[in-house]
Design a protein around this nucleic acid. Structure first.
Lengths: 189, 189
DNA sequence: ACGAGCATGTAAGCAGTTACATGATTCA
DNA sequence: TGAATCATGTAACTGCTTACATGCTCGT
């Protein structure tokens, strides 16, 4: 149960409803924590019950009402304790790479399609993350930013995401290239 | 339950015992699938029961006996079907990045220690993966390799791992640098 | 004498996924 | 008229983790 820390950490970037959090978990947060909406709603309810977040009901017209969650002092302290303690190793599960590992036994067609789709997704995520980066920096260069910001953390994780997605895109295209090269070298014989 | 596909895919690189598989899951496979030893043993037993792998008991002196598992035709077909079908999105959970997201509220000390440790781990994994790469290529350049190999898949995933670990190392060091810079810029004031 | 490596599991519990449920508004 | 967005959940299930268990050999 350390989804709680990911949720609290996501709230550092400002208050959000459950629904808005699912959006954050689709772009920025996706590069360090994966979770389904149902789990987020459940976790937010638990965090609220334990006093780690506060909830403000916002009544909306022409739209369902929503609860805006934000960090309490207790919640912030929980984050501090978490970051000071031992961290679990990275937990990664990527079916695309599993499929690529099978490149020698499966037909190239489906594999190339998967790689192409993933490269496209990476390109889209990159664009979104670059927009986030620009809005975090808001015109400052890196040196000035570091001196003046209160959002160094989100910037660092945003950069991590940008590097990751760029790398993913490159690798997908490179791998597709080699798979095609092998096909050309093998099939005609 | 798609750990099964990761296990089958790992066996493409040759037969292995449960124990040897846990080693593979610590180095190469770790870059696309994470799993604990107990789960591997349980999965291997299930795969054996379903006929997707065969098991050969190897009697050893001065060491406990082991069961060497290898892919059956049915197992290979299961992999082919998997790679042809739809793939789930990447599932990533990384507590280090969660901690870094909190850079503005936590003390830099613990964070810098975490980043340093992770950078060291990345350096070690990189070294191991480079050895794997060398042994896969075995003297051939990339062009020749692609023409002559039956292990393109393992090479592609190995390269993915190399890129990922190199990127991780760089990011950890860069992030630590910015955190220190912010500390210098903020604390003395 | 002690820890690390080899080798394989069981059992209990928690975290995460999948399927299902609801309903209004806005845009094509 | 139908799909997408906003907004929040419940219930059943399964996959994963944690704790525990065993025992031999090799190197320091």
């Amino acid at each position: 149960m350390s989804l709680r820390h990911a949720v609290l950490a996501a709230l550092i970037q400002g208050e959000a409803s459950g629904y808005e959090l699912t959006k954050r978990f689709d772009v920025g947060v996706a590069n360090f924590w994966h979770s389904r909406p149902q789990q987020l709603y459940a976790e937010l309810a638990r965090l609220h019950g334990e006093g780690l977040v506060r909830a403000v009901e916002v009544v909306q017209e022409s739209r369902p009402n929503k609860r805006l969650y934000s960090l309490t002092d207790t919640g912030t302290r929980a984050l501090v304790d978490f970051a000071a303690g031992p961290l679990r190793p990275t937990n990664l599960r990527d079916e695309l790479t599993v499929a690529v590992q099978c490149a020698d036994v499966v037909e190239p067609g489906a594999l190339l399609a998967h790689l192409g789709r993933r490269a496209d997704e990476a390109r889209e995520k990159l664009a979104a993350l670059r927009r986030t980066e620009t809005s975090i920096l808001s015109g400052r260069d890196e040196e000035e930013f570091v001196r003046t910001t209160g959002h160094l953390g989100p910037y660092l994780t945003c950069r991590r995401g940008i590097r990751y997605e760029a790398d993913t895109q490159e690798w997908c295209e490179w791998a597709a290239g080699l798979i095609r090269a092998k096909e050309r070298a093998t099939r005609p014989s």
